Amino acid sequence: MNTSRMAMPTPMPASQWDFDPAGWPDDDCVAAGADLRPPTLVAAYRHGAFPMPQGGRLLWWSPMRRAVLEPGALHISRSTRRSARHFHITVDTAFEQVIDACADPRRRGAWIDADIRAAYVELHRLGWAHSVETRDADGNLVGGVYGVEAGRLFCGESMFHRATDASKVALIGLVDVAGEDALIDVQWMTPHLASLGVAERPRSWYLSELPTLVDSPSLWWT
């Protein structure tokens, strides 16, 4: 596994926006507005919310049913293990390429706009956002995942593939680098994620786990 020189996360000042789950509705969408500055994003993730624009508005989400990959739950099929032999993993060597591939407007449900891109590239520069890349035998980028890391929590934002199983291999690489004690949040369930061992948990469960996770030393750096 090849890894670029990753910066330790830059300490964040307090956000001017209040992400208090006590005031959230019983709905996946919990707030609108605010901004995409680094302190805002870090505060949101630490409290269980993430941004996703819709209809020209900046909305914040905390799914009532959260899809998570719990420690030790990753399921790797025999076919995926065979596919993995044809790829290799790199970490934080192509963050902007990964987010651009995830933002491809030809993808169904594409939502990553220029503001989201700029915000996460800045988070990456500050050491909070990371990418795990899948490369073929020639070193070409064929899959990847990016997201935000806080302590023992990794919040996956989006993933892509240009070769069969390349996104699955990226998730395997993410589990390897994040550590066996990390919780990986993937937001909403899909059949693809379920096949890898991802499970749904109530929002209340997810929020109750956050304080211990985000205040723990990061396994990304050990």
Rank of each mutant, 00 (worst) to 15 (best):
T3W: 08
A7G: 00
M8E: 13
M8N: 11
T10C: 05
P11A: 07
M12G: 05
W17T: 09
D18C: 12
A22N: 13
G23M: 08
W24Q: 07
W24H: 12
P25D: 02
D26L: 14
D26I: 09
D27I: 00
D27P: 00
C29V: 15
A32G: 09
G33Q: 04
A34I: 01
L36H: 08
P39A: 11
P39Q: 11
L41S: 03
Y45A: 10
G56V: 04
W60T: 10
R65M: 14
R66V: 05
A67W: 12
V68S: 08
E70M: 15
P71V: 08
P71H: 01
P71C: 02
H75Q: 14
S83M: 12
A84P: 03
A84L: 10
R85S: 02
R85G: 15
H86D: 13
I89E: 06
V91C: 13
Q97T: 13
V98T: 15
V98F: 07
I99G: 04
D100G: 14
D104S: 12
P105E: 12
R106F: 01
D113V: 09
A114D: 13
D115Y: 01
I116E: 02
R117Q: 13
V121L: 14
E122C: 07
R125H: 14
R125K: 11
L126F: 05
G127E: 08
G127H: 07
A129F: 08
D136C: 11
D136K: 08
A137Q: 12
N140T: 14
L141Y: 12
V142C: 14
V148D: 09
G151M: 12
G151D: 11
F154M: 09
E157H: 01
F160V: 10
D165K: 11
A166L: 12
S167A: 15
L171G: 04
L171T: 04
L171F: 15
I172V: 15
I172F: 12
G173R: 10
L174S: 06
V175G: 01
D176N: 13
G179H: 06
G179P: 06
D181H: 06
L183H: 05
L183C: 07
I184Y: 04
H192Q: 10
L193W: 00
L193S: 08
A194P: 01
S195W: 00
G197C: 00
V198G: 13
A199I: 13
A199L: 09
P202N: 04
P202E: 02
S204M: 03
Y206M: 06
Y206I: 06
E209A: 15
L210C: 07
L210S: 08
P211R: 12
T212R: 14
P217R: 13
L219V: 02
L219W: 05
L219D: 03
L219R: 06
L219P: 01
W220T: 04
W221T: 05
W221N: 10
